[in-house]
Each structure stands twice: as C-alpha cells, then as structure tokens.
Amino acid sequence: LLPSFLGKVNDKGLPNNALLALSVIAILIGSVFSFTELAGLISAGTLIAFIIVSLGVYALRPREGKDIQEPGFKMPFYPVLPALAALGSGFIFYELDNQAKIYAFGWFALGLVIYAVYGAKHSKLSQN
C-alpha cells in the first residue's frame, strides 16, 4: 500500500528512497521525544509484536499439511511454549511505565487511522 517510489531500489538492491524517508521520520520523532520515552515506546512495540507472533502460531499450526505444505519452522513444545511466550511478554508489557503504554496505544491507534484512510483508497482490492 506504500507509494511506489518507496519500493524503488538502486543498482545495489538498496531501497534508498525508503531509507531516506524513514531517516527523516526518525530524526523528526527523535527531536520531539526524549530517549527514555523512545526506549519505552520501542520496548512496548516490540513486546506487542512478540505477543501477536506468539499467538499467531495457534492460527498457523492447524494449517500445516493443508494449505501450508512445508512449514518454514517448527514450534517446539507446542501448544505450551507460544502461550508462555505471550504471557511472559504480556507481563513485561504490563510492568512498563504507563507513559510507554499510552504512547504505544496512541501509535497503534494512529496507525489504524492511517491504514483505514490511506489503505482504503490505495488498496488493490478496492480497485477491482
């Protein structure tokens, strides 16, 4: 769904336009928030992503041998390990300071709004 100029790569295969755009965004965000705030936000985002990935194993595992013929990895100690990973990450997220949680949910909400507004207009599904 991103603009096509961000996907262009140079002759070495590097997406210079995307790197430049992300660098500018990172500089702007880094100039507004303190290091402590950014560290909390990054920790919260990483934990949320790990929780989602851990729980996603439960959706993928039943598909093995059906529409996923050769799984790219095997989850050891399934179904216990994904639950423990999600619960452990959830506990660490819960222990983060409230400001990090508020920022994380704010960024999540902003991302949903941007996705809904921009994505609905630029989706290949909506063009069919």
Rank of each mutant, 00 (worst) to 15 (best):
V24F: 01
Q99T: 09
N16W: 11
T36D: 15
F77D: 07
F77I: 10
F5S: 09
G13R: 08
T46G: 11
Y103K: 00
S89L: 02
S23R: 03
I29N: 11
R63V: 00
E70Q: 13
R63W: 04
D97Q: 00
Y94W: 14
G65T: 03
K121I: 14
A116C: 12
N10Y: 07
S126Q: 13
K12P: 04
N128Q: 15
K121P: 04
S54L: 00
K66Y: 09
P15K: 05
L87E: 07
N16S: 12
V117L: 12
A59R: 08
A104T: 13
L6G: 02
K124D: 15
L112H: 14
R63Q: 02
G40H: 00
L96P: 06
G88N: 02
N16G: 08
A100P: 00
E70A: 14
L60V: 13
P79L: 01
L22G: 06
P82R: 02
F73N: 07
A116W: 07
A120K: 10
G13A: 08
V32A: 05
N128H: 15
F50I: 12
L19M: 14
L28T: 12
L110K: 10
Q69I: 15
V117N: 02
V24H: 03
A59W: 09
V24C: 02
F5T: 10
L2N: 11
F73Y: 11
L110E: 07
I102T: 01
N128F: 13
I114N: 01
G119F: 08
L41I: 10
A49V: 09
I27S: 08
L20E: 07
L112T: 09
G88F: 04
E95W: 02
A18V: 09
A18S: 11
Y78H: 07
S126A: 11
L28Q: 07
S89C: 11
I29C: 12
G40W: 00
S23M: 06
F93M: 06
K8D: 11
V113W: 09
V53F: 05
G13C: 04
L41Y: 01
K121G: 03
S23W: 00
N10W: 15
P3Q: 11
F105Q: 06
S4E: 13
L60Q: 08
L22P: 00
I114E: 02
K8A: 09
S123K: 11
K8R: 14
G40K: 01
S126I: 12
G7T: 15
F50A: 06
L125R: 14
L6P: 02
L22M: 06
F5E: 10
V117K: 03
A59V: 02
I68G: 03
L112K: 05
G40A: 02
Y118A: 05
Q69V: 14
L87N: 08
E37A: 14
L28C: 12
D97Y: 04
Q99M: 04
A116E: 10
L47R: 03
A59E: 03
L2T: 10
V117C: 07
L47Y: 04
A83W: 05
L20G: 05
F50C: 08
L6D: 01
I52Y: 01
L47S: 03
F35Q: 13
L125T: 12
G45K: 03
Y94E: 00
Y115R: 10
F91D: 06
G56Q: 01
Y58N: 03
L22E: 01
A59I: 06
L28R: 03
P79M: 06
F35P: 09
A21N: 00
G7K: 12
F93S: 07
L20T: 13
R61Q: 12
I68L: 15
V80M: 15
